[in-house]
Each structure stands twice: as C-alpha cells, then as structure tokens.
C-alpha cells in the first residue's frame, strides 16, 4: 500500500507492506534511525514518536495506519544546526547517559511541554512513566526538564563533597 506522511516537516511517499510497523518504517524505509526499539511490545517507550500531536509507541503502530499523518521524531528537534532549548538542558544537566532512551524521552517531554509549559515534578514523572531509562534513575532527566522550563533552582554543587 502507498502511504504519504509528513515527518519532521518533510513529505514522504512510500510503498509499505501491511505488517510494516511505524518504527521500522522510520528506521529502515526513511533511514531515521534516531528512534530506537527497546522491546517492540509497547512497554519501554524507546520508540516514542509524536503522531498527529500525540505520543505513541511506534512499535505498536502500523505504517499503513499513519497514511496522511504528521510525525515528529528526535531528528526534527534540533533546528538549523542548533540544539533546541530542551536538548540543551539535557546536555547541561547530564540528562543523558547511554542515550538509548533519549530520543523517545525527548518526544514524551516535548509533548508534555505543549500542554504544560511549566510542568511540576509530578507531571514530568507521569509524562515519562512510559519511557524506561535504565541508566539515569530519571533524576537528571527531570532536572533537565525543570531547567528547560526555567524552574531549576540554582545549586552551588551537584553533590555534597565531604573531606
């Protein structure tokens, strides 16, 4: 089946099989490998993209289902060679370790910030509940979001040092 989609503002028309998932479509047909697979079963959120304004697990969406759709992925986040405010905050605050959860995480946060420009910690936790991160323990991710939204209280030190 032929589908037409807009991904990160760019139009694509492709022939896809019925069993092509959106995740594999993005990664293999469009070469947008930023979006990752962590489970293929809707649990981990590594594959999160924004479809028509809402986050979805792209491993559980079929490519033919998104015909005519608008999709946002991690590759669309930096503009004109510059990190977005959100990406910069993740960079500053060590919101990234191995980076495998990061593309999906960014999409969930981006979607949250559209509804809550200044989210509370509880709202951030709710929004990224479906994005497993095995490395960071989430704290520095949450701080990155607070920083991006101008809510991070300045701290003198990252960690209390005792000699």
């Amino acid at each position: 089946m032929k589908i037409h989609v807009k991904v990160n503002g760019k139009d694509y028309t492709r022939e896809v099989a019925g069993n092509r998932t959106l995740l594999r479509f993005l990664r293999e047909d469009l070469g947008l490998t930023g979006t990752k697979e962590g489970c293929g079963a809707g649990e981990c959120g590594a594959c999160t993209v924004i479809l028509n304004g809402k986050t979805v697990n792209s491993c559980l969406v079929l490519a033919p289902e998104v015909d005519g759709g608008v999709i946002e992925t991690v590759e669309g986040e930096a503009k004109n060679g510059k990190l977005s405010k959100l990406q910069e905050a993740f960079h500053r605050n060590h919101g990234v370790q191995c980076g495998f959860c990061t593309p999906g995480m960014l999409m969930s946060v981006k979607s949250l910030l559209k509804i809550h420009p200044k989210p509370t910690v509880a709202e951030i936790k709710e929004a990224i509940e479906g994005n497993f991160c095995r490395c960071t323990g989430y704290q520095q991710i949450i701080e990155s979001v607070l920083d991006a939204t101008g809510q991070l209280k300045p701290r003198k030190e990252e960690i209390r040092r005792v000699r």
Binding site: L32, T33, G34, T35, K36, T73, V74, E75, E77, A78, L83, Q87, F90, H91, R92, H94, G95, V96, C98, G99, F100, T102, P103, L106
Partner: peptide, 15 residues
C-alpha cells in the same frame, strides 16, 4: 557537560 550527548540528543549517534 558530557562529551557524547549532542549526538545522542539529536539521533545522530549510531548504535
């Protein structure tokens, strides 16, 4: 700041 995060944040890092 970490030296490896820009690639990871943009999807450019290849696994």
């Amino acid at each position: 700041e970490r030296i490896d995060t820009v690639e990871k944040l943009t999807g450019a890092a290849l696994y």
